Amino acid sequence: MEIVCRSGIQVTGEDVCAVRDDLIVEDRIRLFLNGEYLTTLVASPDRLDDLAAGFIICEGLADRVASVNVSGKDVYVTAPVGRDIRLEVESSGGYRVLGEPRKVTSSITTTAETIRAVTAAIESDTWRRTGGVHCSVLFCGGKLATRACDVGRHNTVDKVVGYAALRGLDRSTCILGCTGRQPAGMVAKAANAGIPIVVSRAASTDRGILTAERAGLTLVCFSRGERFTIYTHPGRVSDVLAAIKKAQP
């Protein structure tokens, strides 16, 4: 990732001193779909092929992409579009596609131990250096497949999903881990990508949980240390479900 150093004046109580801090670079990326301009994404300017492919899939426009070509800050994607493109403005300065997310179909299960491993993997050196990025990870077959950092939490999901799509990984067997909150838009991204389990260190919202419930997605939030909360479809966390059944009279 691109990092720059900037000067500042740090105030601590009555003390004042000059400092130089590492800061993450923010840029604007133009995305073209099948030769037509689609949207502009505010993002960290790295892994642009993964970002663009993931955006197309996570917004439900296509299940796969045929090709991605990067030219400077412009990215050109070719994909078999499967729905009407209706965009709404996002607070981040980009756009999101309107419509209901896809249903998740997957028979995979996981364990509390794996959920904790996914949570631990979310940490990144970039976050420790700058404090200015979100991070997502993708676990496939119980192992870390990829980790992505970005100024936008949505972009981190796009990047790891795009990585999986461009390398032919079966997303229905994967677990997504995130640092960011899980409102409806974030949950919809995972659902559109066909990812059955999402683990976040942060909170969800009421609509985020409702979206996960309707999409058939297992949503795990507040995953920190030994603790986590399962909000939807707990049957995929096999040992936790067994413990609940055992405790019932």
Rank of each mutant, 00 (worst) to 15 (best):
Ile108Lys: 09
Thr119Asp: 03
Gly8Tyr: 04
Gly8Ile: 11
Gly93Arg: 13
Arg207His: 09
Glu2Gln: 13
Gln248Lys: 12
Arg30Ala: 14
Ala191Met: 05
Ser107Thr: 13
Asp50Gln: 10
Pro101Asn: 06
Gly208Asp: 03
Asp49Ser: 11
Thr229Cys: 14
Ser223Ala: 15
Val25Arg: 02
Asp63Ser: 15
Pro45His: 07
Arg64Lys: 12
Ala53Glu: 09
Asn155Ser: 09
Leu241Asn: 03
Met1Pro: 08
Glu36Lys: 13
Ser44Leu: 04
Leu176Cys: 11
Trp127Arg: 14
Gln10Ser: 08
Gly82Cys: 04
Thr105Ile: 11
Val133Tyr: 10
Thr146Val: 12
Ile85Tyr: 03
Ile195His: 08
His154Thr: 02
Glu226Arg: 15
Ile29Gln: 04
Arg96Asn: 13
Gly208Glu: 07
Tyr37Arg: 07
Glu26Ile: 10
Gly35His: 12
Ile24Asn: 07
Ile175Thr: 07
Glu59Arg: 12
Gly168Thr: 06
Thr110Gly: 07
Val97Leu: 01
Glu26Cys: 06
Thr146Gly: 02
Glu226Phe: 11
Leu241Gln: 05
Asp15Lys: 10
Gly13Met: 01
Ala188Ile: 09
Gly162Glu: 04
Thr156Asn: 00
Val11Thr: 10
Val157Gly: 08
Arg181Ser: 13
Ser91Cys: 12
Gly177Ser: 01
Asp49Cys: 02
Val160Cys: 00
Thr119Gln: 06
Arg86Asn: 09
Gln248Phe: 15
Glu26Gly: 09
Glu90Leu: 12
Val198Thr: 11
Cys58Asp: 14
Leu51Thr: 10
Glu100Ser: 12
Asp15Phe: 06
Gly180Asn: 06
Asp150Gln: 02
Asp63Asn: 11
Gln182Asn: 11
Thr39Ile: 01
Gly162Cys: 12
Ala165Leu: 00
Tyr37Cys: 09
Phe32Met: 04
Asp50His: 09
Phe55Trp: 10
Pro45Gly: 04
Asp63Glu: 13
Arg129Gly: 05
Ser200Trp: 09
Asp84Ala: 15
Arg83Trp: 00
Asp46Cys: 12
Leu38Phe: 09
Leu38Asp: 07
Gly94Asp: 09
Asn192Phe: 02
Asp125Pro: 11
Ala212Lys: 10
Leu61Val: 02
Cys149Met: 05
Leu144Ala: 00
Ala18Pro: 13
Ile175Met: 06
Leu144Phe: 01
Asp22Gln: 14
Asp239His: 05
Gln182Gly: 07
Cys135Trp: 08
Glu90Asp: 15
Ser67Ile: 13
Ala145Gly: 00
Thr114Asn: 14
Gly141Pro: 15
Asp46Asn: 14
Glu14Asp: 06
Asn192Cys: 02
Arg167Ile: 02
Lys73Leu: 10
Arg6Val: 15
Gly162Val: 01
Val199Thr: 01
Glu213Gly: 04
Lys189Trp: 04
Asp150Thr: 00
Leu51Tyr: 09
Ser71Cys: 08
Asp170Phe: 05
Leu210Asn: 02
